[in-house]
Design a protein around this nucleic acid. Sequence first.
RNA 1: GGCGGCGUAGCUCAGUUGGUUAGAGCACGCGGCUCAUAUCCGCGGAGUCGUAGGUUCAAGUCCUACCGCCGCCA
Length: 514
Amino acid sequence: MAERVHITTAIFYCNAPPHVGSAYEALAADAFARSRRRRLGRANVSFLTGTDEHGDKIRRAAQAEGVPPREFTDRTSAVFRRAWDGLNVAYDYFVRTTDPEHEKFVQQMLERSHARGDIYFKDYEGLYCIGCERFYTEKELLPGGICPSHNRPVERISEGNYFLRIDKYRAQVLEHIQRNPDFIRPERYRNEALNMLAEPLGDLCISRPKSRLEWGIELPFDHNYVTYVWYDAFWAYVSAPASRDPNFISEVFATTEHFIGKDILKTHAVYWPPMLLSAGLPLFRHLDVHGWVNFGGQRMSKSSGNVADPVSYEAAFGPDVLRYFLLREVVYGLDGDFSEQRLIERYNADLANDLGNFTSRVLSMAARYFGGELTCDPVLEGEPDDAALADVMSGLEERVDAQVQELAFNRGLEAIWQALDVANKYIVQTAPFTLAKDQAKLPRVAQILANLTESLRVVAAALEPFMPVTSRRILDLLQVDETAAAAPYGRGLKQGHKVKPATPLFPRIDRKAG
RNA sequence: GGCGGCGUAGCUCAGUUGGUUAGAGCACGCGGCUCAUAUCCGCGGAGUCGUAGGUUCAAGUCCUACCGCCGCCA
């Protein structure tokens, strides 16, 4: 059977619009998905994202605007969808937890766990934070009964609720993590997860009484309750593909790559695996945990008013620029920093000077000396300069792909830029513009330009997962279709091929950050 | 309080299992080229590798303590 992979971002809670941090996760997952599609074929990769739309916070946000929750999330979910479309996040599934097929699926999973005896009813009294939508123990609270993340008092609530047996599966999950060293990566987060699982866990409250909250999925075995939003949301990773492909759960789900932020490590490492096991599903393949994207050195937050809107950067600097910046600058797994100043520096140094200018000089010479036509095939051996160029261009995409699979997006891009460096040096070394002054040397000039054009093709192809629009633009200038774009170095462009004249891809930005 | 991470050139960071004069990019200075988006290529300066000890023939790289920043758990 063909190798398959299922890739997910977190399901975004849509009570506020996406910021650069949520965009980063979508972009990293998208680059990963695109890279996998190039290797495994489009049909063997599914990439899922979406919005989390139930729960108290959504209900309250809707109430504040005087609209029904569904109307509210119709609008806010669409904002996410448009943002991802604008950033060229090529998802296969955009799941909304209010989709009927999702709701039905969640109820099926509840039935499965219920039938297995993993769900029980218990009267419960506890300290509840509305902001967090969860109960706290005394020890977790700040003095005076203050919620540590919302900095406001919790409420004492007494009610009966349904619980899922989490601790029952703790040993099994622990063992799985120990036996699969890269199950949670990077490793630092694996260690944290092992820590969390080292001691007995409380079971997970998975219901809310309708008397308190109606905005959720009704429990199939008790009409007086809805499902707790966290339980509901996890299944968004599975519901849509499982509804459409009967073999998804048995054959595909185990290949899942979950891209998540470090803030939800605990829920994904501790609660999600028991939920799966209890419902009779296998575990996913990897939990791929990333850090924060700060803004000018500060944590992005609504209260400090420094929330960067990803779509505005797309509009201001052009397609792919935010993608390039985040994937090049942020080390996956560590916190990164976003600033317009840095963005412009990267833009000028890497995109305008290295990539854009290289494209421009190659196509200009091709047009000037040969009317845009290749008059010979590129060569792998040739002269020492040619061989050095071929050496770095051959297998470039494979080297990049290997980095992407390790989530080292920055290193993948570095590898492409190393190839660009060699290509720029090659022009200086061989000086085709000097040789062209001598009629007798035109055949050598033709050879050099064939090699350079071919190099540009390989670079454009390798760039696709990170910068799909730019990749397409370069390939259009080269008049290359998808099939030719995928060919190894030396086997793509042929004698007689014609390319278009140069057009600037990334005009320099001569201003300071505003 | 427990566990863990980080602290290397002005900035952002690489530095495998300890081993020749500690590296890259950006920024800066000088030189070269002119195909190209004042771009490209070459050269250059600068770091007591957080502090203090220790192990070793040899430590940024291992051990201990301390300082600073951060995370997770309680």
